[in-house]
Structure formats: C-alpha cells, structure tokens
Design a binder for these strands. Structure first.
Length: 594
RNA sequence: GGGGGUGUAGCUCAGUUGGUUAGAGCGCCUGCCUGUCACGCAGGAGGUCGCCGGUUCGAGCCCGGUCACUCCCGCCA
C-alpha cells in the first residue's frame, strides 16, 4: 500500500462507492459554506471533489488552507445525490467524504493562480514556471510534447532507424549561426562550441557504416529569438540515411508526418502526398520559400501588360521601362467589397514599408472595365489580357505591386497572407504540407556582393558533376529541400556531398581555400577519403511540430522551461555571474564594454 | 543593432480636455452561511500610477530620457 494514495485524482467512480480511499494532491479550489466545505483535489491525472463538515476535527485546518497546498486526504467514496453531480468532471458522480487530512506541503499566497484561464504576464509565468505548468492547458501541451517525442521514437525504430547520441561539447564551425562557446580548463585559451546541429557527426555516423540514424537532438545557436524560435536551444528530429536519393528521404518523412499528425490532431491534411514545389516556382507563385498552401491566392506576373500602348498607368510603365516588374494577386468575386477593404490593404502595405498596393476591380456593363483608383488606366483589351494571364473573371479584383524582384516577392508574400486573412480564405482546420526543392547552391550576398552558400555547404550539386559550370555558380542548383507546413518551415535537408574534390571546388567558389576546409572541417573531410557512402538527411524541428499540433503561436507554450527574449531563464536566473576562482581556472578575464 | 506595442492594487483591466480623496472584477483578510462545483452574502485591508527628469498653480494623463516584458526587421548555413 502506497503511503500517499490508493488512487489518483481521476480514477474513482461509482464502482468504489463505500470504499475507504487515500488521495494526495493539490488543493485546487475551495467552496466554503461555513459549516460545510467542498474542495477540489487535483493531481496530474485529474480532479476529485472532497467534502467535509464542521463536526470533523480537521475542518478548521482545511478552512485555513490556501490554494495549492498539498494534501493527503483519507475518506470514503460517496455517491453524489442526483442534482449534485458534475458531469464535466470525470469523477463527478462521486465525492470523498473526508475522514482525516494531512498537510504535506503548504503554499503561500500565489503570485498567479493555477485555477482559471486568465492570461498572465510572461515575466510572472516564466519566474513561477512550476505554477504555470500546473495549469491545465500548459500541462496538456507538455504532455502532448512528450507523447509526440515517444511516438516519433517508436515510428523511427519501426522504419529501421537507430538513435545515436552525438557530443554536446564540440568544435566551433565557421559557417552559420553564432556559436555558444565553452572555455576549456585543460586547454587554456581554447574553446569548445555547443553544436548548432549534429551536422558533421551525423554524416560521420553514415561514414561509420550505421546506415540509418536519428536523434532527438538538442541544437544551440546564439541568435535572437522570435515567437517561433527559442533563444539558445531547441530540438530537432535529426535524420540521416545512407545510399539514398532525395525521394527516399521524402518517403520516410512523409510517412512519419502523416502518421504523426493524424495521430495527434483531428485536423485534416490538404494532401497526404506532399506537393513538391521547386524553389523558383515557390518564389514566383507565393513570393516566399515557405508558402502557406491553405491560402489559395497565387501571385501572377503581368509585367508585359505595361508595355502596351493602351495602358496609361504611367508610373508603373516608367518603372517597367527601367527594369521593374509588376506582379498581381487576384481575389475572386470581390467587386462588392467596401472601399475600406481595399484601402485597408493599401494602407497596411504602406505600413510594411512598401509603396502601397494599387488595386482595381474588373466590372462589365457595355464593356469590360476597371473600377477603382487605377482601373481607368487599362483598356478593355488590356484587361482581357490580364484576365487571361491571371485566370480572372468579371467581379474579381486585382492588387498590383511594382518594383524589383526581391521587393515584390517580399510585399506580395505578406499581402497574400493579409488579403487571405481579410477574406477569411484560410481553413484553420487544415494542415497543408509541401516540399520546396531545387534550392540554388549559392546566392549573392546583398551587402558584400560576394557569392555565399545559400543553404548548406555540404549539399550535393545537381546535374552531371563533369558538366558543372563553376563560372556561373548562381545557376547551380543543389539537392536541397525544405519541408513546410501551413507557412512554417519545419526543416531543411539535403543530399550531402561525399566527394572531397568536389567539395574543395564548391567551397573555392565561396572564397574558402583547401586549407580552410581541411582546418575547419577536418574530422569530416578526412573521413571522406576513406570510403564514404552517398548519404542525405533532414532535421524537422520538434518544437515547431508540437506548436502546430497544439495550435500554439508561441514556442514557450510547448516548452517546459523556456528562456525569455533576452535569453534569460527568470526561474533559474541564468545566465549568472561566476566567481573569480572559476574564471581564473579557465584563464578568462572579463572585459565588459558599456 | 533598429522599429512597434505594453507597463495603474498580488492578478486582469478602467481611468474623460491636465483639476478634490485613483476605481471595478478576481484574489487576500474578517464575519455569516449544510450541497457547492467560477458557491453566495456583508464588511475590510491593499497603490512610489515601471523608474528619472522636465513643462505647469496643478501630471496616472503632456514632453525628454531610461528600464522591463513582448512582437517584428536584421540575424538564424
């Protein structure tokens, strides 16, 4: 017999009536009638109502106990009389008639109540995280996270993968995010870095002949936070496979995601076969490489219209002559929307830093014409051509943006979301996955005008290796891909480059010498010279998957002990000062500028 | 590094054009109450209006600065 309980707080029912039971839990809520007191006892599993009358010697003790006191209650299971049952509660047909009570741990007055669904400031929630986590919604989010992780583990094992741990203390890498550094006592002046991801290790695991790897891997990046991005640390489902092509990886991940999302959510999937969208198409049609496919709006290029003589929209025509392009978003059957709808979108676009969004509606009386501020600039023939390009009909409206490719992609991808939200076009009960494929190997850095890797420098370029044109690096595509769900990037991955000679050439384009690579990636590059299998992988973000499944917009809602935006743990008070002795041992001197 | 939002009781918030003693709900304390489940009723305590400075006869309110939290941009191969 357990010292604290015979049952948990959710399992008693009419079956146990008249039984003596022992329950332990938190005092969730008290209803004090003076001579009769009800209390809800709560634990991880649920809630049970207990009742005590003033003839019981423990009555005054309970009357004085504050919420969240931890109690051990012994009593008899009693059937509730009809009319006093609470069917919202699993144990609502019975209650415990209290015989005796022991206070296991008392609680002070709470900085934030556990009871109820009121919102509380982030600062208090983080400082008193243990209280926040007792609240039903947070508690359930964390349980969901745990179940998701075990489900993933068991599915991956079923798919023939094995889980391997990789080092947490490793070496700093020149590419990518800022590293978290850890000073080495035994090697004064030298530092370990926490892994931004186990990238090189998982490739080394393949080279070591293990074939299929996965890990629920902690990753550390010293970059600024966002709502969907923890500062410092996060978890990836890290995957790597040997002797595979891109599609083999897609198959595994699709199977896993479909299974996972169907198991943990009642929302439907737009398609269980995830569409594959080349990067270039995604940028053209959605203006972004993480499109929300629940949103039916598509961006169309209508630059050619502005070369017509019967189009009088001089501002745009002038810009087009000097190289700008014009792209449009069509909204179906919006001719009756009030003027304010259109103006709000235009105003919003200006707030986003764009020069605004021009718009008009296609109407027809005698002939087809454009209605709205810029509608008069288009002839009937021009409108017909627009309708043909955009697959638009009378009654539809058109939003236009003009500028260089990058500007337009940015504003129209935002506008696509904004307009869809305004028109309520996004089905919230849907998961829409897709693959974005064929990323360019390189891109031009805006500031330095240098060629840099656009994604992962260890990726395999596409095409016959003998025919790769290193003179035109921006045209080289890679076997690189992202998986996106509802506009959220879950992960990127790649087929890796396992050929050292090719790797030297690819890095040379981005300005790295052979020595740079030999120094910085010594472990991996050395291994490639002793027989490396073709391999590839991916690493979906666990936190974001759980966010999607829990329907939460903020990563802290699905993280047990998160840090705040300034990368501070308000509960543990990290980071903190350390004493001089520790610093001395590590050969470190502080030099703080302010 | 930059931009936006917020900051008034333990918590959620209201506070008019700058004008007497800054309010409400929840929580807390006291009393009453034997069928509640957001129990009810009566009473009470609780405030450096984030902080510093300025304008003014007078500042929660206006101005400048600063701090905290948050959202976004940059950043995150």
């Amino acid at each position: 017999m357990n010292k604290y309980r015979s049952h948990n707080c959710s399992e008693l029912s009419e079956k146990e009536i008249n039984k003596s039971v022992l329950l332990s839990g938190w005092l969730h809520r008290k209803r004090d009638h003076g001579n009769l007191l009800f209390l809800d006892l709560r634990d991880h599993f649920g809630m049970t109502q207990c009742v005590i009358e003033n003839n019981n010697k423990y009555f005054p003790v309970l009357e004085k106990s504050k919420p969240e006191t931890v109690l051990k209650i012994s009593g008899i299971v009693v059937k509730r009389t009809s009319g006093t049952e609470n069917l919202d509660l699993k144990t609502g047909k019975i209650e415990i008639s209290i015989k005796s009570v022991e206070i296991l741990s008392s609680a002070k007055e709470l900085p934030m109540p556990v009871f109820g669904e009121q919102e509380y400031p982030e600062e208090i929630r983080l400082k008193y995280r243990f209280l926040d986590l007792r609240r039903e919604e947070m508690h359930n989010n964390i349980i969901l996270r745990s179940k998701v992780i075990s489900f993933i583990r068991s599915e991956m094992l079923k798919l023939g993968f094995l889980e391997y741990q990789t080092p947490i203390l490793t070496s700093s890498s020149p590419e990518g995010a800022r590293d978290f550094l850890v000073p080495s006592r035994l090697n004064p002046g030298k530092f370990y870095a926490l892994p931004q991801a186990p990238q090189q290790f998982k490739q080394l695991i393949m080279i070591s002949g293990f074939d299929k790897y996965f890990q629920i891997a902690p990753c550390f990046r010293d970059e600024d936070a966002r709502a969907d991005r923890s500062p410092g640390e996060f978890y990836q489902l890290d995957i790597e496979m040997s002797f595979v092509e891109q599609n083999d990886i897609f198959e595994v991940v699709e199977k896993l995601m479909v299974n996972l999302f169907n198991t943990f959510s009642s929302k439907k999937m737009l398609s269980e076969k995830f569409p594959k969208i080349p990067y270039e198409d995604a940028m053209n049609k959605y203006g972004t490489d993480k499109p929300d496919l629940r949103n039916p709006l598509i961006i169309q290029d209508i630059t050619e219209i502005f070369n017509r003589d019967d189009v009088k929209f001089d501002i745009f025509k002038k810009l087009v002559k000097s190289g700008s392009i014009v792209r449009a978003i069509i909204t179906k059957n919006t001719k009756d929307k009030p003027r304010s709808f259109f103006d709000n979108i235009d105003k919003w676009a200006k707030e986003q830093g764009a020069s605004g969004l021009a718009y008009f509606t296609i109407e027809k009386d005698e002939e087809i014409k454009g209605k709205g501020p810029v509608g008069k600039f288009f002839s009937q023939e021009a409108l017909k051509q627009i309708m043909k390009i955009c697959n638009a009909e009378v009654g539809d409206s058109i939003f236009l943006a003009c500028g260089n490719k990058k500007e337009i992609e940015k504003i129209l991808s935002l506008a696509r979301n904004k307009i869809a939200q305004s028109l309520n076009l996004i089905d919230k009960n849907l998961f829409a996955f897709c693959w974005i494929t064929d990323y360019p190997m390189y891109e031009l850095d805006e500031n330095s005008k240098k060629i840099i890797f656009s994604h992962n420098p260890f990726s395999m370029p596409q095409g016959k290796l003998s025919e790769l044109n290193f003179q035109k690096p921006l045209a080289i595509k890679a076997y690189q891909y992202d998986i996106v769900c509802n506009g959220i990037e879950l992960s990127s991955g790649a087929i890796r480059n396992h050929l050292p000679d090719l790797m030297y050439k690819l890095f040379a384009v981005a300005g790295y010498t052979k020595k740079d690579i030999d120094d910085k990636f010594s472990g991996m590059i050395n291994a490639f010279n002793y027989g490396a299998p073709p391999h590839g992988g991916i690493a979906p973000g666990i936190d974001r998957i759980v966010m999607l499944l829990a329907g939460k917009e903020n990563i802290r809602e699905v993280t047990l002990f998160p840090m705040n935006q300034n990368a501070q743990d308000l509960m543990m008070q990290a980071p903190s000062e350390v004493n001089e002795k520790q610093l001395k041992e590590l050969s470190i001197k502080k030099d703080i500028k302010n």
